[in-house]
Amino acid sequence: MAVSTILRTVKQAIWLGWKIDTNWADPLVFAIYYLIRPLAGLLIVGFIFLIGSGVAGTFNPDYFAFMFIGNSFFIYVVQIMMSMSILIHEDRSHYEVLRHIYLTPGSLRWYILGRALNGVLNATVSLILTLGFGLLIFQVLLGVQMSINWWGIDFPLLALSLFIGMFCFLALGFMLCGINIMTSRVQFMLTEYVSGTLYLFGGVVFLPEILPSWGQAITNALPITYFLRGIRFAILHQAGFDVQTNLLYLVLTTVGAVILGLGVFKIAEHKARKDGLIDRKEEY
């Protein structure tokens, strides 16, 4: 397929995703919507941390920063998984346009990529708003100490970790799209399964060392572990952290995720066409 066709498909899909996501509300309501859920999630964990530390009698600002950064950047996982998981269901059963998209000169996978990239953009907006309001509430209003030097962020490492991490999450999203093409009515639970597993085992809000050994083995196999470690080091600069090794593990696990995600999607797409599932109707 010509590069210009691919780029046009991706661009139009991003634009379509943006319009679908935003045209039900005015920009202010939309911004509030994209702020409130992740911010509430951050406040839940923040209050658990503060209350737990209060009854235990010790407060560790380094752990708080660990939790703050981990929970905030987890927004990418939630948004991308949600965008990509419900995409097939929405386009096939709800709006009934998947078959039309399938017939166009652009490929379905580039269309999905475009819609997913819109999810990345939305997640970035959510992240920036959540970090800003999270800092305002915890640091300014509640006076919580946080050992973060916002002027000393290692931006190249942050950008590199984000870039590789996005590949990984998009690949996992393609896997969910593949499963959704083959199945029906599991789109929401799939998102929750993947997000929940990554949240529990990915070292998002607590140190993975507290998990049982089998849990730590899962942690070590997940790309999000290395993604969040890279992000945290770029922002918090913890001593004794081996950046190169972490990046190597992040790349290796991401390659694994890409092979798995695109492989599942390719097989599912082929089988869906063979079995006539591209225009399957569910409850509509």
Binding site: S53, Y63, G196, Y199, L200, F206, I210
Partner: peptide, 19 residues
């Protein structure tokens, strides 16, 4: 299973804090 994943994360967070 899904609710257990999130609530387990929060229980582990309390454990990490020695609550």
């Amino acid at each position: 299973i899904i609710p257990m994943l999130t609530l387990s994360a929060y229980v582990y967070l309390y454990k990490m804090l020695n609550a």
